[in-house]
Every structure is written in C-alpha cells, then in structure tokens.
Nucleic acid binder design. Structure first.
Lengths: 173, 173
DNA sequence: GGCCACATGTAAGTAGTTACATGATTCC
DNA sequence: GGAATCATGTAACTACTTACATGTGGCC
C-alpha cells in the first residue's frame, strides 16, 4: 500500500492535517502521484488504529476544526522500511502511447489532432514543473531537485519526439 | 473504459482469442499497457453482449477449444470514436520517483541501493525494448515504430540522469 | 513425476475514484 | 447571491488484480 508510505514521508517532515496532505501532493508531486480525499481520510484513520500516527484536534477561529496528525516512533520505523523495500515495477498505462500505437489504423487528421493535443499537454506540464524547479535553485534537497529534473527531462524528450513525428505526418499531405 | 478500446484495436487488425490478446499485450506493448486474464475474459463477454464483437468457438486438436472474436461494424465505429476522444490526463504513480523525492530523509546507503536498483531495471527495460525495435527497421508502421522510439528515449533519459545522480551521491562519501 | 504452454473462467479481494453531505467564512 | 476556500467524512461505484479451478498434451 503505497499511499501509507507517502503519508508517512510527509508527516516525517512535520505534523499535518488530511487537507494539508492533499495540498502537499498537489503542490509538490502532482506529476507522479495523486490521491483523493476519499483515499486520504480513511487511510489516516486506519493508520491511527495501527499506531503509526496520532491525532490532535485543533480548534481554529473562523475555520472548521483540524485533525492534525503526528508520526509515531512505529511510524518512523515503518517509513524507513518503505524506503528500503524493493522497487515496485512500474506499468504506466499511457492513453497517449496506446492510441499512438494504433495510429497506423487511423486517419492523418486524427493523428495530427492527437499529437497536437499531446504536445500542448506535455508543454503545459513542462512549464508548470519548470516554475516549481526555480524554487529549488540553491536548495540543499538534492533528491527532491533530481526528481523534478527527471520530470523535466522526461517531458522535454517527449515534446521533441512528438514534434518530429508531427513533421513526418505533415509531410505526407 | 480504456481496455475496450485496446481490445477493439487488436481485433481491428484481425480475429483473436482472449489468450492471444493477452500475449499481444505482452509481446508488443507491455511497456505502457498491461491487463490480466481476470480483466480480459469478462470484458470480452461484455463486449459481445454489446454487439461490438462476435464469438466463434474453434475446435483444436490436442489443445482446448478457442473462443475467436471478430470485430463488428459497431465495434469498428466504437474504435474510431476511441481514437478521436480527448486524451485522458496521465498520472503515472511512480514508486521510484516517490521514493527518490523522500531521499533527503534517507541514508546514503538506502539511496545508493534505490538508484542502483532503478538503473538496473531501466537498463533491462531499455534492452528488451531495443530488441523489439530491431524488428521495425524497415517497417511502414510509423506510429508503432514511434511508440517504441518514445519508450527508448524515455528509458535512456532516465538511465543517464540516474547515473549522474549516482555520481553525486558517491562523491559525498 | 512435475512443470510449462495452451485455454477459459470465477470469486474474493484491493485500491482507488466520484459524488454527495455538512457547515463556516471570505471574496466578488 | 453565488462561488471559492477551508475542513472532514461516507456510500456507491469502478476497475482492476490474485489466486484458484479445470483440463490436455508435450518436454525433460
């Protein structure tokens, strides 16, 4: 169960509420991880019963109460186990690659649309990630930085290749 | 439901059994799509009731009977709709990137192990895909070929970057 | 004798999403 | 007045996977 490891990692760097954890995902690693409230809240409850985290209810003025979670010693241990576990094999079910694969059975128009759409989306993802990257300029967090660099490299290589496929498709007119 | 589109795409290029469809996945696009028998067989049944495909039971000598499926006209239409539908956004839940991100909270040993393991796996994926690529040398299937090229580019860029992260980690000894 | 390839199928479980409910406050 | 933000939570649903059941025939 990967989400538990991710939550432990976030709580390992400080106490947070479920709502904050969701924003943490979105702001920092939305490009390779995602989870909804429907997953986060039940998972936090489950982790509390397993003594991996503890809950404190914090009252706020003008805002609803917060459930602030802290990681326990057992939680820290579990997080270290997660970091040392063997890598899960990655099967990225890519809608774009799948449809590109079937391109030889489609019309030129369909493929031009698909490629242009993919190009726009990858360029958008690249730009957003690049903005985030600027925050890391002099950061000592080399692994977080590397993570973003890997994302940028990946998007950039796709953008270049999609452009080159598009020129081949255009030529066939 | 993406798997239906994929099955339609395979049956659009000829009749196949569920077992053959599974092998088709594994041999041709295991690097960006995967599905188990537990998904394939029930999906084929469902698609038959929706008149997207038709079943023929073929008797074989020394082997069990086969259910060979053919695509119908409705199925061909549905496949074209699938190819023209807007792209689904891709969230590749990457175990490797997630754990790399938390690397600044881990020991150097842990990260060296993680990076070496990832390097080996990506190199393995690259080699396997490269073998497949050789079959496409003079192929007119430009989109299938491009697909594999995108896979190779992706793996290669990751391999190079992981190597460079590793040298940084090594220096810190 | 045991394992692999061929071939189909189901039951139980996993992991998650979407949509809704609740409710206060702030911004336009 | 409506939408957005903050904040938690549940129910229903989707989309799978894993493990098992069944059976033949070939290979070592």
């Amino acid at each position: 169960m990967k989400i538990q490891g991710v939550i432990l990692g976030i709580l390992n760097s400080g106490p947070h509420s479920g709502y904050e954890i969701k924003r943490y995902f979105e702001e920092r690693f939305s490009f390779f991880f995602d989870a909804s409230f429907g997953t986060i809240y039940p998972t936090l409850r489950k982790m509390e019963t397993e003594y991996l985290i503890t809950k404190k209810i914090v009252k706020q003025e003008g805002k609803p109460d917060k459930n602030i979670y802290n990681i326990t010693d057992t939680g820290v241990e579990r997080f270290q186990e997660y970091l040392n576990a063997p890598l899960e094999k990655e099967v990225s079910n890519s809608d774009f690659l799948m449809r590109l694969y079937f391109g030889d059975m489609a019309t030129r128009e369909t493929m031009e649309m698909l490629l242009c759409q993919a190009l726009r989306e990858y360029q958008d993802l690249y730009d957003k990630l690049n903005e985030k990257y600027e925050q890391y300029e002099d950061s000592p967090l080399i692994f977080q930085k590397s993570c973003i660099e890997l994302g940028l490299i990946h998007y950039d290589s796709f953008i270049q290749k999609i452009k080159s496929i598009l020129t081949v498709v255009e030529k066939k007119k």
